[in-house]
Write a protein that binds this DNA or RNA. Structure first.
Length: 271
DNA sequence: ACGAAGCCCTGCAAGC
DNA sequence: TGCTTGCAGGGCTTCG
């Protein structure tokens, strides 16, 4: 389940192998992702070189002379770099064969991801145009959260996971950040003080930065690896721990469903 | 305009 | 053992 740290780790892992590399061939085995992969993709990319590799939220952007390839990993997608003769597995839907002899391979069992072509300014694309600030960028702070939340009566957890508010905070990190800032996930967004938002924005940055730092430890092995660093788990304090003891006060962690998302919190520590 | 629910999809685990 | 059922979840889309 790629959250922002995993996407960032993927970006850092693939970028050095893609920059200035020519695309020899694009193989689309299964075009039916969230939206169909454009049939004209091979014609647009083949014999062209990758000029830039970047990220906006959880969307990866590969710049080519004629436009950008926009990739989202959904919740089960991954990109890996494999040697040219590597046999494709069950959910290996797309191969981008590079001049270097490596293949950038897109795998996505649940096919919630997408691979689209964008002409012109990619940030103007409908999927990107109304995204909120990057959580690790300068525009994300308590002031932003506070101002955004003034007319929002939805639960803070839903608010935090809204990509128009801030990108890249998925279910796992929303649970963790709220625990670490002592905020009850069901509290209404407009019932939280600016001081508490200050703590929350700090914690969101800390948690994501720490996860990225750990994802970085697997970068060395990205080529040929499965591209799925195992940074989470050990540091998680509430996610996946419903019914177990709070790491701070030992109270039993409560698990509820919010939206259709598993939500875990400490009834003692979070208000 | 806002908020909640629905939906896409497959793999895995639990229950019968 | 093999079926069915439920759950996981990002985020766009639809409904109220």
């Amino acid at each position: 389940m790629p959250e922002l740290p995993e996407v960032e780790t993927t970006l850092r892992g693939i970028r050095p192998h893609l920059l200035k590399q020519g695309v020899q061939k694009v193989v689309i085995r299964r075009p039916t992702l969230r939206w169909p992969i454009p049939e004209e993709l091979p014609g647009l990319m083949e014999r062209a070189a990758v000029e830039e590799v970047s990220r906006r939220g959880k969307y990866l952007l590969l710049k080519f002379p004629l436009g950008h390839l926009m990739i989202h990993l959904g919740m089960s997608g991954s990109l890996s770099l494999v040697a040219r003769d590597t046999v494709a597995g069950k959910h290996d839907h797309v191969d981008i064969v590079l001049g270097s002899g490596l293949i950038l391979r897109y795998n996505d069992p649940r096919r919630f991801g997408c691979m689209l072509w964008v002409e012109g300014e990619p940030l103007a694309h409908p999927l990107l145009a109304s995204l909120g600030p990057e959580p690790l960028g300068p525009l994300f702070d308590n002031e932003h959260l506070y101002q955004c939340s003034r007319r929002k009566s939805l639960p803070i957890k839903s608010f935090l996971m809204d990509s128009k508010v801030v990108v890249g905070v998925g279910n796992i990190y929303a649970n963790e950040a709220l625990f670490r800032s002592g905020i009850h996930p069901l509290r209404k967004a407009n019932r939280i003080s600016q001081q508490r938002y200050a703590r929350l924005s700090d914690v969101v940055r800390e948690v994501l930065a720490a996860a990225i730092a750990q994802g970085g430890t697997t970068l060395r092995d990205f080529v040929g690896g499965d591209g799925k660093p195992g940074y989470f788990k050990q540091e998680l304090q509430v996610y996946g721990r419903g019914g177990q003891g709070c790491v701070d006060c030992e109270a039993t962690l409560t698990e509820v469903r919010l939206g259709q998302r598993s939500t875990v919190y400490c009834p003692q520590c979070q208000h």
